[in-house]
Design a protein around this nucleic acid. Structure first.
Lengths: 334, 334
DNA sequence: TTGTACGCGTTATCAA
DNA sequence: TTGATAACGCGTACAA
């Protein structure tokens, strides 16, 4: 069933059918009605490939998600999905491995699918620096800041990871903690991990806190298991910390389990503070203290910015979303 | 940059370029080399729209995911993604609302995108019965059984939800429990929820256990919050259960928090058993007892079956994946 | 207001 | 082993 069939069926020409389908002006009511009726009856669906080939671009928005096992990206995708669903743009979600190059992937997908715009969840600045110039459509980097990359089609929406991590540690210091351990992301491969670690160091310096980067810090992947393993190593190395900061809630959860397995109570013996503010955290026992990012807001703003770039040729911008250090039950004053 | 440009650049015709690009026979080594070189240099990417328009179908595989806030679907998508990535087929993931009609959505996407095959995560049999006939490409329904629907292009891979739930309750009975509460899915809208509930009833009947469907059962959505709320209602209604079965791990987590908020200890006062076997469960305190589905296997087999249907015209099949009732720390003998 | 005809980038047929 | 060319389904300039 093509527009040609539709034309034949209704007695009109393909041009008229096309006009009706695309709500173009200069079509008689009569023609419109007849054609719409034929569309209904035949269950006609436009052939996207032909349309996009003709128009030299798709009407879709593309999302590249880096790392599938990241719960935060999961909620992000969820909100993005529902926001984009309010428009007429189809959304295509593409998952790639945490270690893949998201920019090269995006370049390829852009050439292949010709989307209107693209969102990238999780990114490595180095990749952007090297290859982003090859992307011509508007792009929003979600959850990392790209303000020091000067591409006029690249926007970003993120939390101020470094400052947020500093505030997190500050809050632990305010609770009386002096001996810290950190379970964070790998500084080499994860910008987010590095920034959050630097934020911690900022706080340590400011408060004159003693911290051995080699022994008190573990840079691993953002997962339950890695958080668990890293914490076990910290304990086995006899780092006698009273507070543990995890650069992600999933790590914090793994950490709490590890502490427990070694007989430590949370928060009585060790306070644990996470980062992300996953919904899950408030249902745990103890409820997870965490740096709560406005995940929802991050997603909503990202979509808004992208749509503005696409529809109004809006210029690129770099925004921060607010965060809150939320003390719940996994941290305590000592 | 099109194959026409490539042809011009190398002095060959477009046909030869196309042959090289698609690894067709009857091309001289020399031509192959020259053309591949030009491809490298120009960063040429084939235009999928044109290709698919010509071929009357895409090379992609489509996944329709029903409900974004479902962690189990998250892991499923993750595995599917990595399995499909081993092939050359691009994967398109489409998320729809938990309440939307997944079959109509799939029908539309098939007509629009012409994928090679399609996978649907989460499904309502009624929708399939009404509209699946409109889908012509191979399809695998993941996580629900479709064996009593006789479509020869519809396969399914699932856990035997009813039997698994029965085994779960059996195990609680074996631990000495006699007073039960169930936090499950809505039997009207969720096939999975209904089957798991029926499994529970099977066990109750078999063991002559008293159960008031109106008071002891709550049918809600698969989320932390709904599990929490439902459990609060059960407690407030003074249903004095010693065991709570949740039809999903996320609900079980919400339930444990609710119990805790009302001063009940898990498992000392109440045993809680979940369903799904999320990785998260084994990091919780207490570690969550659960009906562990082979999520990974489910995803892997689904992809295998779909690829077999696509590539070898393999016939449709309905498979079950194994499950295990895993007693960890949230259940105990009384 | 409507229709004709061309071209988007590709693949595949056929002839060379 | 190659190349010219006809489709694929759509949108749109141009003509009517």
């Amino acid at each position: 069933m093509t527009i040609k069939d539709l034309a034949e069926k209704t007695g009109y020409g393909v041009a008229t059918v096309s006009r009706v389908l695309n709500n173009h002006p200069n079509v008689s009511e009569k023609a419109k009605k007849a054609i719409m009726k034929a569309v209904e009856e035949s269950g006609f669906q436009i052939n996207d490939n032909a349309k996009q080939l003709k128009q030299q671009r798709a009407t879709s928005i593309l999302v590249v998600v880096k790392g599938t096992s990241n719960e935060m990206f999961g909620s992000l995708v969820e909100t993005i999905q529902s926001e984009v669903a309010k428009t007429d743009y189809p959304l295509i979600v593409d998952y790639i491995d945490e270690d893949d190059n998201e920019v090269l992937r995006a370049v390829r997908l852009c050439r292949e699918k010709k989307p209107l715009g693209i969102m990238i969840l999780g990114g490595n600045m180095e990749h952007f620096r090297n290859d982003f110039e090859k992307i011509e459509v508007p792009c929003v980097l979600v959850s990392s800041d790209a303000s020091n990359l000067k591409f006029d089609n690249l926007s970003s929406v993120s939390t101020d990871d470094r400052f947020a991590a500093k505030c997190a540690v500050d809050s632990l210091v305010a609770l009386g903690h002096k001996r810290f351990a950190i379970v964070g992301g790998d500084c080499e491969t994860s910008d987010t991990g590095r920034l959050r670690f630097e934020g911690c160091m900022d706080s340590f310096r400011e408060h004159g806190i003693d911290f051995d980067r080699e022994l008190d810090y573990k840079g691993v992947r953002f997962s339950y298991q890695d958080g668990y393993n890293a914490t076990c190593r910290l304990i086995e190395n006899k780092r006698n910390f009273t507070a543990l900061f995890a650069a992600a809630d999933v790590m914090a959860i793994g950490a709490i389990r590890a502490l427990r397995d070694y007989g430590f109570r949370v928060p009585e013996d060790v306070s644990v503070l996470g980062f992300d503010g996953l919904a899950l955290g408030s249902f745990l026992v103890p409820k997870l203290s965490t740096v709560e990012q406005s995940v929802r807001k991050m997603a909503v703003r990202s979509v808004e910015i992208l749509l503005d770039s696409i529809e109004n040729n809006g210029k690129s911008r770099h925004e921060r979303v607010p965060f809150v250090v939320r003390q719940r039950e996994s941290t305590r004053k000592i």
